[in-house]
Design a protein around this nucleic acid. Sequence first.
DNA 1: TTGGCTTATACTCAATTTTAGCATAAGCAG
DNA 2: CTGCTTATGCTAAAATTGAGTATAAGCCAA
Lengths: 326, 326
Amino acid sequence: MPSIQSLMRDKAALSVDLSAVIMAATPDEPRVLTVRAVPQQLDGLPSGPLQSQHRTLEMGLRAWVDQQTELKLGYVEQLYTFGDRDRADTDYRGAGHALSIAYLALVREARLAGLAQAAWRSWYDYLPWEDWREGRPKALDVIAPALKAWVRAGGRPLRQFREERIELTFGLESGTWTDERVLERYELLFEAGLVPEALRDAEPRTTAKARLAPGQPMALDHRRMLATAIGRLRGKIKYRPVIFELMPSAFTLLELQRTVEALSGVRLHKQNFRRLVETQGLVEETGDTTTETGGRPARLVQFRREVLVERPAPGLRLPGARRTDL
Amino acid sequence: MPSIQSLMRDKAALSVDLSAVIMAATPDEPRVLTVRAVPQQLDGLPSGPLQSQHRTLEMGLRAWVDQQTELKLGYVEQLYTFGDRDRADTDYRGAGHALSIAYLALVREARLAGLAQAAWRSWYDYLPWEDWREGRPKALDVIAPALKAWVRAGGRPLRQFREERIELTFGLESGTWTDERVLERYELLFEAGLVPEALRDAEPRTTAKARLAPGQPMALDHRRMLATAIGRLRGKIKYRPVIFELMPSAFTLLELQRTVEALSGVRLHKQNFRRLVETQGLVEETGDTTTETGGRPARLVQFRREVLVERPAPGLRLPGARRTDL
DNA sequence: TTGGCTTATACTCAATTTTAGCATAAGCAG
DNA sequence: CTGCTTATGCTAAAATTGAGTATAAGCCAA
């Protein structure tokens, strides 16, 4: 029955890439490493073909990153395998599957010596509607009406369905923004034809002349990968201490908070945030303080590794995510 | 730099399978669909090669399941791509990559007409240490001492590391069982050489004559896939109403609770469970009752689809997971 | 050297949620 | 009608969360 060992009959039509969403962060901005892909003049994620000398997929990815950059990958996890036959890659269109196994990697330092065309970019250059730190992002002024138009463009039965989906992902009416639903939001914009990638893939149609959502597109389906990675990371910081993979060895509580805010895209209540971090036992004092913060000197703290064993799900449940909206 | 379009130089050494972890559940037992793989006399997961006519990976999986079974897949999500070069598949050992893209699928009914060698099996036939519903599983009587021996077998620096990992995953000392860490536990047992798959892969070594952990092995790395799927599902029911993909259209609150318990492997506090379900607005009354439960007739309820729009993360946060241990 | 500005940190209080029960209801079997 | 079973309602105490107030400790400029 399941012929597990049967070989592909269509080998020629198959390729497998490893793609890396490599992230770093400062208290001000969450970053992703992108390279400028010449063919389309678009930014893309670093990626390379899976090769037979790679013993495992993750080792393949690490080897590739090692070879191409000087970054030391800390945390690495597999994200998702993208493999629709019609991925937006002209070389493969219709010919068969171009699989891409995407990984999420976190790095602490942001040095880029030796990386010619690579650059650290803010997440929000590509997905500006995801940043609510300064209140409702302006990108929504374009997106909201365009989505409404998309609802109206649908047939009777479609409308309610689309409306609900918009509400579920963007929460425009009820004001319930769910920071993790990054991919769902991107996919909605994609389906609504509000990102150029969607038009690129589709038959050239003049139907939708909707204004596009702000935000820079990326090569192939790399923006989808980025959205997947951001959503995953935003979810993960809530129950695993991965945030510390992005922090320097010593930092102040406010720096930690700002970094979390940068990633999650929302502002937090300061006092409650500190209380959470401390009652969870996530950090311990180094003994030093710093005056670089402006006001009263702040204690420097570091990640307390022991929590891993103590608590079942140590993370930052984002207390008091302040509704900065409206 | 990232030569995205470069073809694999070693095509011959590459194959891609789609594997399905298809799950169903009753209030008594969580089930997985397995097929008997003849070559090794072991149970395995249904799987089949990715073919070029499949437009998307998920469609490939669905097509394959459609063709081979009469099951109607409800919820489907991609789980993980397994692709170590030395996957426990003798046909590919050393030759190159045998990728397997595993999917998790949930089905409501458990009819199996037409599936010859397929059968619904309890999860816990394969991973018996994961079932704490009747208290501490007996499997741990074998596993705990074997793990201790493994700690002792390690060199000085290794010991503490191993000890912490055991504590983190199994929580034997502190009694902190974390239901989702299914994969981490399986991988630990694998590394400790307590599952036959590990020995199968390794050079035949006579070193570890440790007793194996109870639980039936599976073909290839299918038990790892199962563990991945269980962990994912256990996590997911806590913040998404996926449990209802496994329930009949109408059910009692106790049936719902028992099903959740079957999946999560722990017992819950009855009154608090109902309160949670009701305050979350996850269900609504159908108006009917059933006397089939033995005592006082129970109201029949059904999933309330509206919660999807109302609540950001509707799920069963497993209130009062009673420590049935010791 | 002092007042004003900044950020840090300590505490408080009310509202909400969770934990762990007790108590009562409503069928069925004998 | 009694006792058994499961269903369902309700509650008191504990813990957590949300939203502040108050105070501390630097720096800077008048």
